[in-house]
């Protein structure tokens, strides 16, 4: 692959990106308004708040929870979330005895429609290699201490399957509405590197 063996004196990445965009623009292959719209969508409209709504609904609607665990993509689609990197989403349920955590060892596959674009640490080589080898330790370093009797399952995303963790509903939230619950759900909890804490 040509680009991968590029000469070492190439101009910096920002210039290359600008160069590529200007060339594509001149050749009529991209519309800057479309590019702007896509960026805005992924910066503002698509993000962990989508996944949080999915989780909150699963916490409050047993029938939805059943559908979500059976066919994540379809149940997520019911709430209107679909699109690139969301073609097949499997939902992993955390329980008192099982903790799921997600990684993509090959690149940085991530369920965009429900979590938006991945944060830096998710893309980092250290997370991607270490979470597989020593998940308990990495999770502890990220602030999530798990008891030794908790079974940690690490799920490696692929181009075919993306994962969303369904965290445990925190204690003392029985009176909260679905919307209030959604506000508690964090991105980290849905990747499996954090837990949802009560308000």
């Amino acid at each position: 692959m040509t680009a991968i063996t590029r000469p070492p004196d190439h101009p910096d990445a920002a210039l290359r990106a600008e160069a590529l965009e200007s060339l594509l623009l001149e050749r009529g292959l991209i519309d800057p308004k479309v590019v702007d719209g896509l960026i805005s969508r992924y910066e503002n409209d698509v993000g962990p708040m989508n996944g949080a709504r999915v989780v909150a609904k699963a916490w409050t609607d047993a029938e939805y929870r059943r559908r979500l665990l059976e066919d994540g993509t379809a149940a997520i689609g019911e709430l209107g979330y679909s699109g690139p990197q969301g073609e097949y989403i499997e939902v992993l349920e955390n329980t008192g005895g099982v903790h799921n955590v997600v990684v993509c060892t090959l690149c940085s596959c991530y369920p965009w429609p429900v979590l938006g674009l991945p944060p830096s640490w998710y893309k980092d080589p250290a997370y991607r290699s270490r979470i597989v080898r020593e998940p308990r330790r990495v999770l502890a370093e990220m602030g999530l201490e798990l008891d030794d009797d908790v079974d940690i399952r690490v799920w490696d995303s692929s181009s075919e399957v993306r994962y969303l963790v369904l965290p445990e509903r925190p204690e003392g939230t029985a009176d909260l509405s679905e919307e209030e619950l959604a506000a508690l759900v964090t991105r980290d909890a849905m990747v499996g590197v954090g837990r949802v804490t009560p308000p």
């Binding site: 990106a17 600008e18 590529l20 965009e21 594509l24 991209i30 519309d31 479309v34 590019v35 702007d36 896509l38 960026i39 992924y42 690139p84 674009l117």
Partner: peptide
């Protein structure tokens, strides 16, 4: 920008 261009 690069992300937006790719997705476009």
């Amino acid at each position: 920008r690069l992300f937006g261009v790719t997705m476009a």
